[in-house]
Nucleic acid binder design. Structure first.
Lengths: 220, 220
DNA sequence: CAAGTTATTATACACTTGAATAATAACGGC
DNA sequence: GCCGTTATTATTCAAGTGTATAATAACTTG
């Protein structure tokens, strides 16, 4: 984020032996910038548009630098994937308050920006499409999915208990699978074609659906 | 499907001026073979592994032929996308029988092979990831989604009427959005990590969820 | 402020890509 | 059975790919 206008900081160049001036980024910062640039490229240009040169250009550095921070382009992309999964799940896992509020917020967060936007779903889809190709990505997906579902299952367990209807782990598991599917499906379509839905409609549908699935009102 | 072993049909070659013998495919057949090979490549190697040469090899022809059937590689891929969408929606749209059976079959079909398999979801994701890049693909997706949801909405409308609980278009729309999301979400996860679920579990969860969402048993 | 370390640049390389071209083998009509 | 049409092959091309390497500018340490 610090000094990305490298493109404009070229000096005279071409005449003598001098080369472009540059900025030495602090520890770890350039790494994150490169990952961010990678994700920008993937979401805007597709996976095959995310070339080393294109990524470096966005990050305001030259292509060679990529190999100084990562063993290979593929490794950088795998690391970028972990970043995406984390950004999609972190926000939802940090909900706070009483069980009903936490459940409600969990659903709303996943259907609201920044989790729900076209960039996120593009990135998610790009990686999903590689799950069959690269087993490492498959493993990352699997962990992310299970962590997400487990978090949801915990929320449901607490919620049902608080409502005086404690449920077995098995029942909670089935509810978690269903609600996870519901939220994921609505998230995808909302991201891809948000204009097909009215403002707040998806959240409203999601809330009503969860209430129907659990057979309980979420609010007091 | 007819004569794919072109790789083995090379003749002497190399010595004189003769070239590889080949088979002139009937009208439209080669086109479909190329599309099929394209989809195979995308699902197994990813979008960027689906090169003209790789695709041609799978189809048992040489790379140049692609441009004889399609204006460009991109156009061929767009056409392949239409193929995928069609294969994902056709089976589900042709359900027959009484309203309850049609609804039940619709859900089951979407969560059973061949609709629900890792190849399908890979292809779907590969294209979804390009929706932001290529507006033509965005339009194809939009049409496919709406057709699918409209079909579901019709099924729901018939089902509710048959159960003596006719519902307005608006109510059916909301139910269709929710159930579509639910089925899509379960479909994705089932395709990606089917081993996380027991045999038939996803269908069982989907059926129970739809009953809860509609507030009605599906069976008699 | 000098010397050493290294993050960064510039350039080169071998290879792959989608596309264009010309030659030719396969087939349909007569 | 020959001939014209065209589907198919073989080859070429310029542009783009990830990676390797050497030079160098920026910072760190004394």
């Amino acid at each position: 984020m610090a000094c990305n206008d490298a493109a404009s900081s070229r000096q005279a160049w071409g005449a003598g032996v001098s080369r472009r001036s540059f900025h030495r980024a602090p520890e770890g910062e350039r790494r994150q910038e490169l990952i961010e640039a990678t994700l920008d490229c993937i979401s805007e240009l597709g996976l095959k548009g995310a070339t080393v040169r294109q990524i470096a250009m966005r990050a305001g550095v030259t292509a060679g630098l990529v190999r100084h921070y990562f063993d290979s382009k593929d490794q950088m992309i795998a690391e970028a994937y972990r970043n995406v999964i984390a950004s999609l799940t972190d926000k939802a896992k940090n909900v706070e308050g009483d069980p009903a509020t936490r459940l409600k917020d969990f659903i709303a967060i996943n259907l609201t920006e920044p989790v729900a936007d076209s960039r996120s779903v593009s990135l998610w889809a790009a990686f999903i499409s590689q799950v069959r190709v690269d087993p490492a990505l498959a493993e990352i997906h699997r962990e992310g999915y299970l962590a997400f579902r487990d978090a949801l299952q915990g929320l449901l367990s607490d919620f049902l208990a608080a409502k005086g209807r404690p449920a077995s782990a098995e029942v909670c598991r089935r509810h978690a699978i269903a609600i996870n599917g519901l939220v994921d499906g609505l998230w995808v379509e909302g991201c891809l074609a948000g204009d097909l839905f009215r403002e707040g409609e998806l959240i409203s549908i999601a809330m009503a659906s969860v209430e129907a699935l659990l057979g309980l009102p979420i609010e007091e």
